[in-house]
Amino acid sequence: MFEPPRTPEAAPLGAVADAPPDNWVDVWAPEPLRPYLRLSRADRPIGTWLLYIPCLWAVALAANADGFRLWDIWLILSSGLGAFLMRGAGCTWNDITDRDIDAAVARTKSRPIPSGQVSVGQALIWMVVQALVSALILFSYNWLSVGLGIASLALVAIYPFAKRFTWWPQVFLGLAFNWGAVLIWAAHSGSVPFAAVLLYASGIAWTLYYDTIYAHQDKEDDALIGVKSTARLFGDNSGAWLAGFLVLAVLLMAAAVILTILPSRGLLPMMIALAGVWGFGLHMVWQMRRLDLDDPASCRAAFLANRDAGLIAVLFLAVAALV
């Protein structure tokens, strides 16, 4: 299912060490653009998926309350493009602030700034360009969504520094990465009901699950340079914590489904939607059964698998809205 890690001999010039082999940036992108696209993690699309999926959850679950609309086509398309752009802007900001840390970590020292492909000034310009294009998309939404989008910038700005002052930087990532659940719900309906907040909280628990797994790849380097993470905090108890985050994500999403669907639409749509929630949870259980937290390749595979877990929920929520 997953590509093996690239070897130094096989990596194209300037390629990032943990990017998938033969990704489109290394193969197809114009050479002058490649360092900037690598800075945006365009060679590793998993982050865009994990930012986009809560937006899709929101469209599908909100549609269970009042139906799909023609406007939702724009929300689905634009939030996907927005996820790509804002993930790129956020990663660029992250790499600017973390350039010294990245240079000291084996997995990240090949990134464009520490490897010298892009200067800090060039990265700042690239970040602003991506953010401005994202703003054009945001301003096509209603004013509530615009306000929520502007508010999210504080979370994006703070996240790279969280690993310096808290053992829970994954919480800050969850707050930022799942903001689309409330923003896109607001863009769909013009309001943020409690179910949207529950869906947002479910996404935060999910992020704590998958990003703790991700952080286990770097725990030895992080310990040497003093970077904090939930992987280091939980240590040998990580499995129990991951199970707790898994259960919390499922229960919160189930509560959002029940609160949205049961009062107005009845049992059948609710059961279809809940089947997607259980599928989401079971996929994470499957991941954990295969996971070895002391093997970086296993951690990376489990982290990547969360795209499919999130899309299972999207599929069933969308079907439930159409019944």
Score class of each variant (00 low, 15 high):
Ile96Gln: 13
Pro112Gly: 08
Thr97His: 08
Leu81Met: 13
Gly82Ile: 07
Val105Asp: 11
Leu77His: 01
Asp102Thr: 06
Gly90Arg: 11
Ala106Asn: 01
Ala104Gln: 15
Asn94Thr: 03
Ala104Cys: 14
Leu81Pro: 00
Arg99Ile: 09
Arg87Glu: 02
Asp100Ser: 04
Ala103Gly: 15
Arg99Trp: 15
Asp95Arg: 11
Phe84Ser: 11
Asp95Ser: 12
Ile113Asn: 05
Asp98Gly: 10
Asp102Asn: 05
Asp100Phe: 04
Phe84Arg: 08
Arg87Ser: 00
Arg111Cys: 05
Ile76Thr: 11
Asp100Ile: 01
Leu75Lys: 13
Val105Phe: 13
Val105Thr: 13
Arg111Phe: 11
Val105Ile: 15
Asp102Cys: 05
Pro112Lys: 06
Asp95Trp: 13
Asn94Ser: 08
Leu77Lys: 02
Ile101Pro: 01
Ile76Pro: 02
Asp95Glu: 09
Leu77Val: 15
Arg87Asn: 04
Thr108Pro: 06
Asp102Phe: 02
Ile96Cys: 14
Gly90Trp: 05
Gly82Gln: 11
Pro112Gln: 11
Gly88Val: 14
Ala104Glu: 14
Leu77Arg: 02
Ile96Phe: 14
Ala104Phe: 04
Asn94Trp: 09
Trp93Asp: 03
Leu77Thr: 07
Leu85Asn: 09
Ala83Gly: 00
Lys109Arg: 15
Arg99Met: 12
Ser78Met: 13
Arg107Leu: 08
Ala89Glu: 06
Ile96Ala: 13
Asn94Val: 08
Ala106Ile: 00
Ser110Glu: 03
Arg87Val: 04
Ile113Met: 06
Cys91Phe: 08
Val105Glu: 12
Ala89Met: 07
Ala83Pro: 01
Gly90Gln: 10
Arg99Gly: 07
Met86Thr: 04
Leu81Gln: 02
Asp95Tyr: 12
Asp102Ile: 05
Thr92Cys: 15
Ile76Phe: 06
Arg111Val: 10
Asp102Pro: 03
Phe84Asp: 02
Arg111Tyr: 08
Ser79Arg: 04
Ile113Ser: 07
Leu75Asp: 11
Thr108Asn: 02
Asn94Met: 04
Gly90Cys: 10
Ala103Ile: 07
Asp102Gly: 05
Ile96Gly: 12
Ile113Gly: 02
Ile76Lys: 02
Arg111Met: 08
Pro112Thr: 07
Lys109Tyr: 13
Ala104Ile: 09
Ile101Tyr: 09
Ile96Pro: 11
Ile113Thr: 06
Gly90Ile: 09
Ala83Glu: 00
Leu81Lys: 00
Asp98Glu: 11
Leu81Phe: 06
Asn94Arg: 06
Val105Trp: 12
Ala103Val: 07
Arg107Asn: 09
Gly90Tyr: 07
Arg107Phe: 10
Ala106Lys: 12
Ile76Trp: 01
Gly80Ser: 05
Leu85Cys: 06
Ala106Pro: 01
Leu77Ser: 11
Lys109Pro: 09
Leu81Val: 15
Gly80Met: 13
Asp102His: 05
Cys91Leu: 12
Ala106Thr: 03
Ala106Tyr: 03
Gly88Asn: 14
Ile96Asp: 13
Ser110Asn: 04
Met86Leu: 14
Asp95Gln: 14
Pro112Val: 09
Arg107Thr: 13
Leu75Tyr: 06
Cys91Lys: 06
Ser79His: 10
Gly82Ser: 12
Ala83Lys: 00
Thr92Pro: 02
Asp95Ile: 11
Met86Ala: 01
Thr108Glu: 01
Leu85Ser: 07
Pro112Asn: 03
Arg111His: 10
Leu85Val: 09
Ala89Pro: 05
Ala83Asn: 00
